[in-house]
Write a protein that binds this DNA or RNA. Structure first.
Lengths: 163, 163
DNA sequence: ACGTTTTCGACAACCACGTTGTCCATCCTA
DNA sequence: TAGGATGGACAACGTGGTTGTCGAAAACGT
């Protein structure tokens, strides 16, 4: 046992594993979310749609606002809104107070998928807490929030590959 | 101080933060890697190329093999190889032993970017170790490797959005 | 009150990255 | 040697992004 500790301390993991572990953790959570979401009646919600709906929120948003929140162009945000609309998760409505604006709002179906996502994430976190212990999980979260640049906890996950 | 601890323990972070933290950590590492890689003479290496070059490795691979390693179709792998070739990171050569196969091999420039990436990841991990303490970082890695499904530590990071 | 500037949404062209499907050449094997 | 499996190329398409342009509407400065 002392030997094991000794060995683990003597030999660190290679540096390239850290990003792989972080990504694999992220991906496994997202995959489980969407598997469960599909089981609960939302088979065609894609990760990008989830981020977008989160960014739209209860109060709705215009395409330009959505683009700013997601960190993409207003055109890209508009296309995403098109897809959400085609799937019945959002609707566009004219703003009576500003003839230029068209507000994107979530439908009840969109709200439902958002609420279910939140519940599923809670359940997944509980599974991690059960496996690792509540303190270790809190440490993990705290350590990550230390290393993550301030303000990087945004919703602009989609499309990061284009950097 | 005791109050702070009390408050932190009494109130867990919401479940949706966990994937966001994991992704933000991953992304910050990848972003820093590519910033530094650009500074060191590789400005047009994209994250997807790094994964692909890693998968090609010292010994080269065919498009079909590459596709299997990355978890994508052979056509997609072939397109990635096209881009690597256009940028001077890889070359294709006929296999004299099998007229069907065309082996993708890294050029010296490709090898160089791979070696630099490894060194940069090592440096980044050292920064995390300095900020969190070596034990906490090891705990973080260990905890993640516990939660990540066996075999999910693969190179198929690119294109996961299409699920 | 009237130009100027800004903002918004739409449209088009394009690129990166993935998918299926098809096709043919080549290799392996029964 | 006939048949099946494999490898690569090509085409069409979907998704998620980009820039650039445009006209209509709002906001602002004089």
């Amino acid at each position: 046992m002392a030997d094991d500790t000794q060995r683990a301390r003597a030999q660190d993991r290679p540096g390239y594993e850290l990003p792989l572990l972080l990504f694999a953790g992220f991906r496994s959570l997202i995959d489980q979310l969407h598997t469960e979401l599909a089981r609960q009646g939302h088979p065609d919600v894609r990760p990008a749609y989830g981020f977008a709906m989160q960014a739209i929120g209860r109060d709705g948003a215009t395409a330009s606002e959505l683009g700013r929140r997601l960190g993409v162009s207003k055109q890209a945000a508009g296309k995403t809104a098109d897809r959400l609309e085609a799937l019945g998760y959002a609707v566009r409505a004219d703003d009576p107070a500003d003839a230029r604006r068209k507000v994107i709002r979530l439908t009840p179906r969109g709200m439902d998928s958002l609420a279910r996502s939140a519940a599923i994430f809670e359940e997944l976190r509980a599974q991690w807490a059960a496996a690792l212990g509540p303190e270790r999980l809190r440490d993990l979260e705290d350590d990550l929030s230390v290393m993550v640049p301030r303000g990087a906890l945004r919703l602009d996950a989609a499309g990061w590959f284009g950097a």
